[in-house]
Write a protein that binds this DNA or RNA. Structure first.
Length: 495
RNA sequence: GGCCCUAUCGUCUAACGGUUAGGACACAGGAUUCUCAAUCCUGCAAUCCGGGUUCGAUUCCCGGUGGGGUCACCA
């Protein structure tokens, strides 16, 4: 069997869409599972839509995901160059060959004429496939007419032919050529269109399997015909269903990010994003759901695809992210957080880091680890440690402490200060002490815990108090308590 | 509108003619608990509709309906 070679063939026209991650994942996994190569080819034949920096982002995203590209413009390879704009002569040759053999022809309709033709079609409520006027001229006649004129080269659709193809995911596809236009394969600017370039390059680069979006299904017969006319063998092709927006239609910004990098910026981990994308449209034989990239590569097979369009489900993505965050050690998570902040939100963590120092930061992250969904949730939580929310404010109201008078609150806080100053060295000892206070003063334990939480953390939701206090240190703990005490109203009618 | 693809809980999906239609997310309830989480348990919830084929259809065929794609000198 010949080598398994897959490719990603993006156009450098903007940010990498989250959906193309699926093509990356499936292409990469299939190549690696079979000891083959994953190659990147840049399809930059549209000069108008070219975006500076887009190619760099493609490498960047791969690096962040930990996916190594075997052959690319950057890495080189045996089939260089890997940018279509640098491979122009090959397409021209192929196009001329098709003309010579009667499978393509020079067409002279101008853009305006075509536009007019389309409007006419639209008005008549019909749309017959386009056929150029020069399609039946001989190659020689076409070329002489082309002298000094603008022209394109169009594929000459055969009459009433049923083109059949076996798709890896969709199964048998069949289309009648009478419903297809004479597609432009070579533009007047000297660049090929996708249809020609993709066939020429996949063949030249010995691509064995193609994973691409279903939007290519309607033009698949065009590609099949070009392969046939050029005498090339067809690769195996899998048309991946597009991901839909929860609100209907294709995934769009109204439901959040769509660019892969934006998800990273939001605080999703690469592992979680990949894991989520793997399973949108593909599933393993087992019920397992958590896969590292390596595990996915090992398990990936072509039979697990679903044919219909999946809906993007953020709750599930969030669940994956939580799982991955919890699976990390506190120190790994701290590193990820620091790196994330540095890249996407510089200065966001500065106050926290300088306030806590690295050791305490890591300990605090460890405490908050089970309470966050995104990396982005962490800074706010960590601020409870590095700065006191009640520096200038009042003790927050809470249903558990509402019924306590100032005098009662004062009694509790003073009793606690007494105990904690004497030294409480373990979680158990600490908890025992608090419960004793509640018992002695005849309050519910819950009330006492909540009052202390409010006073020490400044918030009604926090990590366990003893562990929290350990991190901020006894001096800071006492300072916070004294501050609250000093602010409690002196006179108050008993409730 | 023409052409192409598609259809199992709200969502992601499993079940390659015979299952109490399975799992996961979400949701609800409970256990645990110093709050918030986490964790564990339980529950709710699906084969789009109509015809065939068959002893028997989620599964095969046809039609309808819904969804998606495409109809550029863009990919």
């Amino acid at each position: 069997m010949s080598e398994i070679r897959t490719r990603l063939a993006p156009s450098p026209t903007g940010s990498i869409h989250i959906g193309t991650l699926q093509k990356v994942l499936y292409s990469y996994a299939w190549a690696k599972k079979n000891g083959g190569k994953y190659v990147l080819r840049i399809e930059d034949t549209d000069r108008k839509r070219y975006v500076e920096g887009a190619e760099e982002e493609i490498y960047d995203v791969h690096r962040r995901l930990g996916i190594v590209i075997d052959e690319s413009p950057e890495a080189g390879g045996p089939f260089s160059p890997y940018r279509q704009s640098e491979r122009l002569p090959m397409y021209k040759l192929a196009a001329e060959k098709l003309v010579d053999e009667g499978h393509a022809y020079y067409a002279f309709e101008t853009v305006e004429e075509l536009q007019e033709w389309r409007t006419q079609m639209e008005q008549s409520g019909q749309r017959t496939p386009f056929r150029g006027k020069a399609r039946d001229l001989s190659p020689a006649e076409q070329r002489s007419e082309a002298q000094g004129k603008q022209f394109v080269i169009r594929l000459k659709m055969p009459a009433s032919e049923i083109v059949e193809f076996e798709d890896l995911i969709m199964g048998k596809i069949s289309v009648n050529t009478d419903t297809l236009d004479d597609y432009v394969i070579f533009k007047s600017d000297g660049f090929p269109t996708y249809h020609l370039a993709v066939v020429v390059d996949d063949n030249a680069m010995k691509i064995s399997h193609v994973f691409r979006g279903v939007e290519w299904l309607p033009t698949l017969p065009v590609h099949v015909l070009i392969y046939r006319y050029l005498g090339f063998d067809l690769p195996q092709i899998a048309h991946i269903p597009n991901i839909l927006d929860p609100k209907g239609g294709k995934l769009s910004k109204r439901s959040g990010s769509v660019a892969a990098l934006d998800f990273l910026k939001e605080g999703y981990l690469p592992e979680a994003i990949m894991n989520f994308m793997m399973l949108l449209g593909w599933s393993p034989k087992s019920d397992e759901e958590i896969f590292s990239l390596e595990e996915f590569v090992a398990r990936f097979e072509l039979s697990g695809f679903n044919k219909s369009n999946p809906v993007f489900n953020r709750d599930k993505l969030n669940w994956f992210n939580e799982k991955y965050i919890r699976a990390m050690s506190a120190s790994e998570l701290t590193k990820s957080l620091l790196k994330w902040a540095q890249e996407f939100h510089p200065a966001r963590l500065d106050g926290i880091v300088s306030g806590l120092g690295m050791d305490k930061l890591e300990a605090a992250v460890g405490l908050e680890q089970e309470r966050v969904v995104l990396l982005a949730d962490l800074p706010e939580k960590l601020e409870l440690f590095s700065s006191y929310l009640l520096e200038k404010g009042e003790l927050p109201a809470h249903k558990q402490t509402d019924k306590l008078s100032s005098t009662q609150k004062r009694a509790i806080l003073q009793a606690y200060i007494g105990k904690t100053s004497a030294g409480l060295n373990s979680h158990e000892e600490w908890e025992q002490a608090v419960r004793e206070i509640a018992e002695n003063l005849e309050f519910k334990a819950g009330q006492v815990f909540m009052l202390l939480r409010l006073a020490i953390t400044g918030a009604s939701a926090s990590p366990p108090l003893f562990e929290f206090a350990q991190i901020i240190g006894q001096a800071e703990e006492l300072r916070r308590l004294e501050l609250v005490l000093s602010r409690l109203p002196q006179d108050e009618a008993p409730s």
